[in-house]
Design a protein around this nucleic acid. Structure first.
Lengths: 251, 251
DNA sequence: ACCTGAACACCGTTCAAGT
DNA sequence: ACCTGAACACCGTTCAAGT
């Protein structure tokens, strides 16, 4: 997992008397359109229309669709960083409780950071997919990585463990978020969430148990699962492993 | 993480005297083109040309580009299933060794299965990204999930732990694979891998330590990292957590 | 400095027509 | 049954021209 070289965006000035829109406005409405129509649904013509301007005007602020998507991602990851810095009242789950206060504090911070990004990806269903094809190319993505890694360092892990642990967590967050978002795209808006989950489970049960026996055995579990809970469960699996490493390291 | 309903592909007959190509041939050359040019680089016109036919002929075998990509994914996941079933001589790492032979065998199977999919994603750098937007919609994807879950069941976990564990591992595999593949797309072919990693590390070291201190501290670790090793390290973090759950469950 | 819109190249998809 | 290729709709991007 190698991030790209960080390319500091060459921002144009946004303070001008004649500007009908600003870089910020362009990115903000692009995000709104992405939330509504997805990545393919965002067209530069549509964006220009929404902004009340001509097609070409967008190109004055942004180099093209790719850069626009990068800026949108960077903005939202920045928002995740803000949320991660806010205090959270949540208790740690039982298996992650450690007596060492330094480790406990680091774990809490780690969890809060991871959850902040997951939350944002849940709110913006296109974000995770795009984050993947982008890697750690934008500034805020690196800052996010830096924050996550700092927590691992505070746990007392070796640099190698920090490196591996940080990329594992980021891969997990974005991976699970992308998978959860994917289902929404194909969802049938005429049916409720419960109906759709049930239909999937039904389809499983109709298949050959020789090939799909296990899937059938968890159909009930699947029918009333919760995305957030599922995400946290997997996250705590990884964090649990890191805590073990930290305790071993401490000695 | 809710997979879509499985849609059994309505395959057309491929045994015909006049057919100049078959469904299999279409999908195979599509995969070859995807490996070479990526998802955006695969055009139906290019594919038709490669097959030596007209543009429209592709549509007789496949409903469109989306279905073509689904079939390509399904084929490769099927290949992963084949590899996962092959015996492997690898030893388990130290922290995953358990005296209980049933758990040990299940863990080895789990690891082999996960590695098989990761390997395929490494060989086909577009696969992971596409798997994400697709979910568990194709038959082989569900079979893969079924195989992974069966191993978790064999470890003696609760159904809930099996469900959460299986989706965590799949999210991790595809997530990390997608992130690793992303870097390749943006890679500069004129420079060696080492040069590129070094350039990235250099760029980090030039930034403000206040924001990027931790990243800078792992620059050396990053410079000579290995993707496979990195993947396995994170995977074993998750599996380690599952083993702990299994041992607790056993009593 | 900031914006316009025609023009271009390039897609995926459809479909009437062929064998 | 299987294939062809023109035609269509819709993109992203460029650019000469405007204010």
């Amino acid at each position: 997992m190698a991030p790209l070289e960080s390319t500091p965006p060459t921002r144009r000035r946004r303070t001008s008397a004649r500007a009908t829109h600003s870089l910020e406005k362009v990115v903000t409405t692009a995000i709104a359109m992405l939330d509504r129509d997805g990545i393919k649904g965002l067209t530069l013509r549509g964006l220009a229309a929404e902004l009340g301007g001509g097609l070409g005007s967008v190109y004055w602020y942004v180099d093209g669709k790719e850069e626009l998507l990068s800026l949108a991602c960077d903005t939202l990851v920045g928002e995740a960083l803000v949320r991660a810095a806010e205090p959270s009242g949540g208790q740690l789950p039982e298996d992650l409780r450690v007596d060492d206060p330094a480790i406990a504090a680091a774990v809490a911070d780690l969890r809060r950071t991871a959850l902040a990004l997951f939350e944002l990806a849940a709110e913006h269903r296109w974000l995770a997919t795009r984050l993947h094809t982008q890697g750690a190319a934008t500034d805020n993505a690196i800052r996010f990585w830096n924050r996550l890694g700092s927590a691992l360092a505070a746990m007392g892990l070796t640099t190698r463990q920090q490196f591996h642990g940080s990329t594992a967590i980021i891969g997990y967050i974005v991976g699970v978020a992308a998978e959860m978002a994917a289902q929404d795209v194909h969802a049938d808006p005429t049916r409720s969430k419960e109906e759709q989950l049930d239909a999937i489970a039904q389809a499983w049960l109709a298949r050959d148990p020789a090939d799909f026996g296990w899937i059938q055995s968890i159909a009930d579990e699947f029918r009333d699962h919760d995305d957030d809970e599922q995400f946290v469960a997997g996250l705590d699996l990884i964090i649990g492993g890191l805590v073990r490493q930290a305790l071993e390291q401490r000695g």
